[in-house]
Each structure stands twice: as C-alpha cells, then as structure tokens.
Simulated assay, not measured.
Amino acid sequence: MTADLTAAPEADTPPRSRGRARWIAVAVVVVAVAVAAVLLRVVGTGGSSRPPTLQNQLADRVAAMFEQATPTDHHRHGHHTVGESKVLCAAKTLGFEPTSATTVAEVRVFYGYHFCAVIEPGRPWDYAQKLSGPLSVELTEPPVVKVAEGGLGFPDRVRAIIPAPYQEAALQELLDEDQMRDLRKRFDAEAAKA
C-alpha cells in the first residue's frame, strides 16, 4: 500500500507552524525574564551593580557602616564636620586580614579607601562636603575605625594604619568610575528629597 502525498493532512494533526510558534514564544519569554532580572539587579533595586565578590561585600559593609554612623561616630572617624546631616558613602577594598578569608564573617580587619558625601539642603554634589581617604577597620562590635586624615604627615599616617602591601594603592587610590557614578546618583536622589 502506498500513501498519497498529495492528499491534505488529517484534521487531527496540528500544523508544524504552531509547534514552531510555541518554541519561539517560549524563547521570547525566557529572554525577557533574563533581561528583566539583569535590569532589576543593576538598576531597579538601587543596590550595587558590582559582582558579589568578597572584596565588594566588604566594601559595601564598610560603606553601610559609615552611612549608619552617629555624629559621634563620624567625629571619632575623623569626619569632624558632619553633624546631623545624612551621609552617603562608598568604599573600595585594598586588602584584609586574614588574607586566607573566603567569607565576610572570617575577616577581622578591612584595609581600604572610603569616599563620603554629606547631604545638606541646597547644596548640590559639586559643592557638597566630601570626606575621603585610606582607612582600616577592625570588624569587631563596635568596629574600630582608623582614618588617615589629610595634611602634613599624611603618608606617615597612611603607613601607620595600612600594611606595606597596600600602602602604595592607599596613597593614590580612588573609587572606580562605576562606584563614583552610583554614589553621585544616590546623592542626587537624596538631595532632591532634602
């Protein structure tokens, strides 16, 4: 018996184009969900767009610590003129102890660089008080913060709180462009509310 290939397909058999259309629809949905997830991570959540490495987690913890500090804490950290104003900060990790640590909980001392901007009504970013510099933080409760204040003898103060492997970077380190852009964006949003 031979089959007639010119005959119309049976009514029970769905056309191939419907199967292909379903797969295309599934692919579009998967791609849309992936794009939405990336956008929420980078833009929509307001969180850090940096990967969650140990260095970035430590830097975020130190920045949050500065942002939540009381005026008395800021004074002890060398931020003598903060007062009651809101402070937004970012930090960069230069190193930590022990160097073998693989989690934030294992780190006892953070060595890095911080940059904070003080929000005051009527003061845009370009004129805002900014505080920055190398620091070490003993991650105890409460944390012990040592900031190398600027001025005459600054390199010696940096060497006193930052170990030799990180001193050169501490003397020239600034935040990277992404961190500065994120901090400025947060500052502008908060300043608009003030």
Rank of each mutant, 00 (worst) to 15 (best):
P121T: 08
A148E: 03
Y166C: 02
A160M: 10
L175F: 05
A128G: 06
V104N: 01
L171A: 04
G150L: 11
R123M: 11
I162W: 00
L174D: 15
V158C: 03
A170P: 02
G112Y: 01
E168H: 13
V104T: 11
Q172D: 13
L152I: 14
A169R: 12
R123K: 15
A160D: 14
G153C: 09
L152H: 14
L175D: 01
Y166E: 04
T99N: 04
V107A: 00
V147W: 13
V144N: 10
L131N: 05
T99A: 09
R108I: 00
V137S: 00
C116S: 04
Y111I: 02
Y113E: 09
R157Q: 10
P163S: 07
P142F: 10
E141H: 12
Y111R: 02
V137W: 01
Q167L: 05
G122M: 09
H114Y: 13
K146T: 12
C116F: 08
P124N: 09
P143W: 07
K146M: 11
Y111S: 00
T140W: 06
P134W: 05
Q172C: 04
A170C: 07
A105Q: 11
F154T: 08
E97I: 02
I162C: 01
G151H: 07
A164T: 13
R108P: 03
A101F: 01
P121W: 05
T140N: 09
T99V: 06
Q129F: 11
Q172H: 14
K146D: 11
A160N: 12
V158D: 02
Y127I: 13
